[in-house]
Computed example of a mutant assay.
Amino acid sequence: MLSSVRAALGLSLTCISALSLISPAWFQTSTFSFGILTYCSWPQGDSWNQSCMTFSSLEDIPDFAWKVSAVMLLGSWLLLAFNAVFLLSWAVAPKGLCPRGSSGPIPGVQAVAATAMIVGLLVFPIGLASPFVKEVCEASSMYHGGKCQLGWGYITAILSAVLVSLLPIISWPHTTEVQGRTIIFSSATERIILVPEMNK
C-alpha cells in the first residue's frame, strides 16, 4: 500500500516538474515572459494572442548559467521520471518477484534528483544578467529581475523541488534500539524486523 502511495507521489511530482520546465512564465513583463526552455511575447493588453518560441538546443539558450541550469533541471527531471517508473513497477510487481523487506527503489536517486533540481533553480537567476534578459527586463542583473516579475512557472519549480527533497526522507527505513535489539521499521512493509544485537 505504501509503495503505491510513493509511486503516485513520484508520478505526480514528475508531472509537476515537467509542467514547470515547459512553462514560459518563470519571469514576465506586461508583454513578454520567459522560462528555462521557452519564451513568449504578445501585444500590450492582449495576452491571449501570444507568440511562443522554444530554445531548440543548448546553443540557443542565451547565457552559460542558464545552460547549466537547463542541464541540471532536465537531468533531475529524467531521474525523477526513471524513479517514478521504477516506483510504479515496484508497486505493481508480484510480492514474490520483489522482496518487500527492503525499502524499494533506491532513495538515493530521489536525493540526487532533488539536489540537481535545487542547484538548477539557484543557478538560473544568474542568467538574469544576460543581454537577452536585460533587453526585456531593463536593469536586470544577477538575482535581480529588474522590471520582470516572478511568474508561476518558477514558483511551481521551487515547490516541486521542495516536495522532491522530502521524498527521500519518507523512503529511508527508520531504525531504533529497544532492549538490546535493533528494530527496523521499513516503510515498504507492515512488518517489524528484529535484529539481535551482536556481542561487542
Rank of each mutant, 00 (worst) to 15 (best):
M1D: 10
R6F: 12
A8K: 00
L9F: 13
G10F: 08
L13R: 06
L13T: 06
T14N: 02
P24C: 07
Q28R: 09
S30F: 00
S33G: 02
F34R: 01
F34G: 00
C40T: 02
C40K: 01
W42C: 04
G45P: 05
D46L: 08
D46I: 11
W48P: 00
T54M: 09
D60T: 09
I61T: 07
I61A: 12
P62K: 01
D63R: 03
D63V: 04
F64H: 12
A65M: 12
K67C: 08
A70S: 14
L74Q: 08
L78S: 15
A81P: 00
N83I: 04
V85G: 01
V85A: 15
L87G: 03
V92P: 02
P94Y: 05
G96H: 14
L97S: 09
P99N: 10
S103K: 00
P105G: 15
P107V: 03
G108M: 09
Q110M: 15
A111C: 11
A111P: 04
V112I: 15
A116D: 04
L121P: 04
V123K: 08
V123H: 08
I126A: 05
L128A: 01
A129R: 07
P131C: 01
P131Y: 03
P131R: 10
K134D: 11
K134S: 07
E138Q: 10
S141W: 05
M142Q: 08
M142F: 09
Y143F: 15
Y143Q: 00
H144M: 12
K147H: 06
L150Q: 10
A157G: 11
A157E: 05
S160I: 00
V164Q: 05
S165Y: 11
S165C: 09
S165W: 10
L166V: 06
L166W: 13
P168M: 10
I169L: 15
W172Y: 14
T175Y: 12
Q179L: 13
Q179K: 13
G180L: 13
R181C: 13
I184R: 04
A188I: 02
I193Y: 08
L194M: 11
E197M: 12
M198K: 15
